[in-house]
Amino acid sequence: MIRRLYIKRMEVYFIIILGLLPLLFDNILFHHIMVIAGIYAIAALGLSLFMGYAGQISIGHSAFFGIGGYSMAVLTVKYGVSSFFSLMAACFITGLAAFLVGKPVLKLREYFLALATIGLVRIFQVMVTEMGGLTGGIAGIYDIPWFSVFGFRFDTLLKQFYLVWIILYVLFMFTRNLVHSKYGRASIVVAANEDISKTIGINPASLKLKIFILSAVYAGLAGALFASVLTSVSPGSFGLDMSMILVIMVIIGGIGSLSGSVAGAVLLTCLINFISESRQFSLSIFGIILILFLIFLPEGIFRGIGLRWIEIVRTYADDDWRKKLDR
């Protein structure tokens, strides 16, 4: 009981600090990084749900990110739909796409699923590039209006920061509740062993599909916000690198840790911006980071460092301390 209260109080402090941060550091670059990080975090949150709680792998979430972004772009620019309804429609279209794709693809396991999802990204990119009439081909779509709701336009990075992070927080709370619900517990069983889950009355196929659709909708929402913040979309920005970035964010935070994936998104976005002057190194650096994390900190940055630290303290601590730690 006390522990629970403590976490909630921590959370309130955390939100207050987060809300004040952009006001304290009134710096365009910082605002920009935080907006993009928040958008990535939404997508990473969904992917973390899919990877950590359904135990599946998807290297294809950039396709859903792209579908969301393109839905937003096409609806607002070509059809003049208001951006609020476009956002809703983008989520719906992404969910529909995930449903259509997920039904056949989720029958696969492990490597086959990973490669099929890579195929999805490629198919998406080819379709977008070739259907030039609708999507602007390789050049993409420009001049997407800022996001606005009831006449209030989110036209500065500061407003966008609050928009993105409030959406992220709502989704975060929703996801956390979901994970602690009947569905969340069932999905942990599915991730651990699909065959056993069948014997206790769980339908793993439908559960996996539901989580897949949900995580795709997160990615689609993030993509729609991405399109409206950057005011342009092009096929190049939704390629396999993007999927890799999302996967690395989840790995940095620790697979299945929801707050970790948000932290991973912030850390990696900072890194991307930090190395943006030497862009040519970025792919190699991402690859190295991913491999090093998998080898040395597979539990994620926080849990991993925590566990290592406990080990170190255990080795050098005296008996009193060791007893305290063991307790």
């Binding site: 290297i59 890799m244 792919l283 190699s284 690859g287 190295i288 980071i289 991913l290 491999i291």
Partner: peptide, 8 residues
């Protein structure tokens, strides 16, 4: 890990 290798 093999995905990371490929990117690297």
């Amino acid at each position: 890990a093999t995905m990371g290798l490929s990117v690297f």
